[in-house]
Amino acid sequence: MTVIVRDLRPDDRADVEGFARVRHRALPFILWSPEGILHHLERTHPAARFRSLVAEEEGEVIGSAQVSLAHDSPEPGQGMLNIYVDPERTRRGAGGLLVRAAEEHLAAHGARTLYAWVLDEPGNRAFAVRHGYRASRSAHFLRRDLAGTALPAQAPLPPGVELRTAADYADDPRPLFELDAETVADEPSDVDSEVTDYAAWVAGTWENPLLNRELTVVAVVDGRPAAFSATVTDGTGRCAAAMTGTARAFRGRGLAKLVKNAALHRARAAGLNEALTGNDTGNGAMLAINAWLGYEVCATEVRHVRELG
């Protein structure tokens, strides 16, 4: 049976659903939806040279790849490729073909250092090594049952602090952009990011169909957004904390714990039954907050790096 690799067909609903299905089977710890996949494909900044690839066998999507340049990094020449194959359709050559197509695309656009997340399982890590990648930093996926055990009680708000939601900024989200940009710059990563393009942020982040503004909680101090916990949902009863951050001037006051707990309470009140999140394994402070909230590690992934000659 022949496996081919091609671009995702955004106008073909079955193709997009096949991409989402593969991602959900291979990586069920992240929310995937056809709408979110299309949004990523259509709204990512052109400078990223973003592509969504599929591996197809006898008309069925069995593998997927998202490929891009780190266009918002101050260091040029960095590329990302994340390859996932349906766990029941491995050993058909789909993964290798996707890696080759992704690397050729990135190299053609100037990438010299490539990064790929790989689930921390022997077969996946061996696959990465065979293709010339070496292990780097790691991150945990975490899960919490919202329908079962009780959440920590919400503590009284500190003096001068109030809680709002992202929906309160619908008319002017720029204050949230500025907070997001500051916190992303300090997020643990192999690739530094500088979020400076407001229009691109609105198109890619604020207008993401998975972003649930009513469940995204913002701590405000003296009228200024100081911390936030962004919540995404996909209509399946699950939610995920996509990003949590605190402005530098307000760190050390417990605001991250405050907004994360408030976001989970809102999610439970909205009828959601499962919460997901992820953390760099070196981010001890956030891992401690998530443990306090009742999250448990459900999987680990390892970022791998390859230098192109």
Rank of each mutant, 00 (worst) to 15 (best):
G79C: 03
T165H: 12
A116N: 08
E35W: 03
L308T: 07
A199D: 14
G245E: 04
E58N: 13
M1H: 13
H131R: 15
R6E: 11
R23S: 01
G223H: 12
T2G: 02
G110V: 07
A241V: 14
N283P: 04
R6D: 10
S189K: 02
G132W: 13
D7S: 13
E207G: 04
N82F: 04
V218S: 13
A55W: 10
T2K: 09
W117V: 02
V217M: 09
R174L: 05
A55F: 07
V218N: 12
W117N: 13
L276H: 09
Q66K: 02
T196L: 14
V85H: 13
A242T: 00
R13Y: 02
V218R: 07
E104V: 00
G59Y: 11
A47P: 02
R251M: 09
E103T: 10
M243W: 14
A227G: 12
R266G: 05
R251Q: 15
G148H: 08
G204R: 09
P74D: 01
W292R: 07
A288E: 11
A219C: 11
P74N: 03
A256M: 02
R51W: 10
L81P: 02
L255E: 06
H71L: 04
E296R: 13
L53S: 05
F19K: 10
V129Q: 13
A288W: 04
Q154D: 11
G123N: 10
T205R: 07
G59C: 00
L276G: 01
G18V: 09
A139K: 00
G309A: 13
P87Q: 14
A242L: 12
A47S: 12
A166W: 14
